[in-house]
Amino acid sequence: MNPGVYPSLLIMCLTVYCIRMLPFLVFRREITNTWLRSFLYYVPYVTLAVMTFPAIITATNDIRSGIAALIVGLLTAWYKGDLFVVALSCCAAVFVTGLIL
């Protein structure tokens, strides 16, 4: 049975919160198992890389501007590394490509 919009929202918000909270309660100490520690250490890199590519090239309405954003993002991240600069450069790349094409 559907409980209505507001109760539905409450149920779903609580579910999402619990998914995020449980690990913080379970892993209260530093894990000693080397494999698990290493796995958790590598998680952010793999997760973010998987989420970035190929999504970045299909995020805009023209794949060429997406590719431009990827290239500019890789270069600025490699040489500059500052979060704000990289994010803005990617936006600028899409904007400029849109003007040219």
Binding site: P44, T52, A69, A77, G81, L88, C90, A92, F95
Partner: peptide
């Protein structure tokens, strides 16, 4: 154009986290 440009900013941030 604004939606397009902004839509890549999150991916740009991901690159700034994993590339350095």
């Amino acid at each position: 154009w604004a939606v397009n440009a902004l839509s890549v900013s999150l991916y740009g941030m991901f690159l700034a986290i994993i590339i350095p």
